[in-house]
């Protein structure tokens, strides 16, 4: 007997691959098809036309865009991310260490925010309409409504300036003891958690409320089941798909969040690298960083969809 979920998962993976192709085309052309000649920018206005032409040839800039895209994409696939304009280093080397730092930040944030958000979201749904539920709702709306940099600056103002508990700037390479880790990561993680968790809470709550409104949840209640049993045995197993989706969508917001947070706290991650690259118009580096983020985002979303398919009892 073949599993009916397999073709669905396969088609989902194909869609992700197509999406990745479209995204890489978009990233490449958004950064290269636009005005301004790269060779001129690199060599400065004073460069001789011969020098510019030489560099153009060396960088394949005189070839059609489609060919350049193929060179670039081929490089990406073989692990060759190109060379940074700004400091002439292989981009792979620049990114590698930064990538690990960013993943640490994202990982810790996920570890904190997912359990927190699920607990708050599920309990709010169970106590729908209560004071607690309304408080959670108002709080999450409030947090969703303010930009991340405001949460970050408020955190700095409160913990670093007013209470003087924590340093205002993070340096991930100075973490030796656990208290150091706590001190360094506390504010970036706190800021990211606020943004990520509030959306997750809202979506989790909505997903559980929806399953609690189904006839089978009512049926369980009429069998004499307690509220807790209705939620745990009947609502939650059927809300796995939407909840996993909520987690993935919210965590994908980390991408936007880290850009702000790494800048404010001067955290040496990949987003900081990218913002700096924007300042120097270092296009190959920007392209590579963008692809790293897009691939991360796609992996999250695809994983969520695959889990949702596997969690659907009708496809067992």
């Amino acid at each position: 007997m073949t599993n009916p979920a397999l073709p669905l998962i396969a088609s989902r993976l194909v869609i992700s691959a197509i999406t990745l192709l479209i995204v890489s085309v978009a990233v490449f052309f958004a950064t290269t098809m636009l005005p301004g000649d790269t060779a001129t920018i690199l060599l400065g206005q004073a460069a001789t036309p011969e020098a510019v032409a030489g560099l153009r040839k060396a960088m394949h800039l005189d070839e059609p865009a489609v060919l350049r895209f193929l060179y670039w994409a081929g490089g990406l696939l073989s692990g060759d991310l190109g060379t940074s304009y700004a400091n002439d280093m292989p981009i792979a080397d620049l990114i590698a260490g930064r990538f690990v730092s960013s993943m640490k930040l994202a990982g810790i944030t996920a570890l904190v925010s997912v359990p927190l958000a699920l607990t708050l979201g599920i309990t709010a749904a169970m106590l729908k309409g209560s004071l607690y539920d309304r408080a959670v709702t108002v709080l999450t709306i409030g947090i969703i409504s303010v930009p991340e940099f405001m949460i970050a600056t408020s955190a700095v103002l409160f913990f670093a300036v007013y209470l003087q508990w924590l340093p205002a700037i993070s340096f991930a390479n100075e973490t030796v003891t656990w208290s150091d880790v706590l001190r360094v990561y506390a504010m970036p993680v706190l800021t990211l958690t606020f943004g990520v968790a509030s959306q997750m809470i809202r979506m989790t709550r909505a997903a559980v409320v929806e399953t609690l409104n189904t006839p089978y949840a009512e049926m369980a209640l009429l069998k004499g089941a307690s509220r807790g049993r209705v939620v745990l045995r009947h609502a939650l197993p059927n809300a796995v798909g939407p909840i996993v989706n909520a987690i993935a969508l919210s965590l994908s917001n980390l991408v936007g969040g880290v850009i702000i947070v790494e800048t404010i706290f001067n955290y040496p991650g990949i987003a900081k690298l990218m913002v700096d690259a924007v300042a120097t118009r270092d296009l190959p580096l920007i392209q590579s960083c963008a692809m790293v983020f897009c691939v991360g985002y796609l992996i999250l979303i695809t994983a969520a969809d695959v889990i949702a398919i596997l969690a659907n009892p009708r496809l067992r």
Partner: peptide
């Protein structure tokens, strides 16, 4: 749907950064 969904999987801040960097 396919095309716009793919566009949607470029995080918004990132897209802003890339465009501003280029133009």
């Amino acid at each position: 749907s396919r095309f716009l969904d793919a566009m949607n999987s470029i995080p918004s801040k990132l897209f802003g950064l890339v465009v501003v960097a280029a133009v």
